[in-house]
């Protein structure tokens, strides 16, 4: 199978998610920091409204945090790709009729 441009772009994205993500800064982001400094960060504490399978981008049951992050990153990247591929498919015009 001939390698297409989007194959390469998807691989780059997976590499970013798997290899760079464990190296990401763990400092609070702009909003979190402002919330801490201005004293309203505590309003977000408590149990989440909806529970998620992979909270904080960590695959559960893995002791190495770097590996847990990498696996979560790969799964998320593939899931986003699949969902948007399906969205694109649903919105695409048919090549046969070519009325779009």
């Amino acid at each position: 199978m001939k390698m297409k441009w989007w194959h390469g772009a998807l691989i780059v994205s997976l590499v970013i998610a798997a290899i760079l993500s464990p190296l990401a800064s763990s400092w609070p982001d702009g909003l979190e920091r402002v919330a801490e400094v201005l004293g309203f960060a505590t309003q977000a504490e408590g149990s989440p409204t909806v529970s998620s399978p992979l909270p904080d981008y960590l695959f559960p049951g893995i002791t190495s945090e770097g590996l847990a992050t990498a696996i979560a990153g790969i799964l998320g990247t593939l899931l986003v790709f699949a969902v948007l591929y399906a969205v694109g498919k649903a919105l695409a015009y048919s090549e046969k009729t070519n009325d779009g």
Binding site: L10, V80, F81, V83
Partner: peptide
């Protein structure tokens, strides 16, 4: 279609 998916994959990563 794949460009939509790849754009999202890159943004997520």
């Amino acid at each position: 279609i794949p460009l939509l998916g790849v754009a999202g994959a890159f943004v997520f990563a």
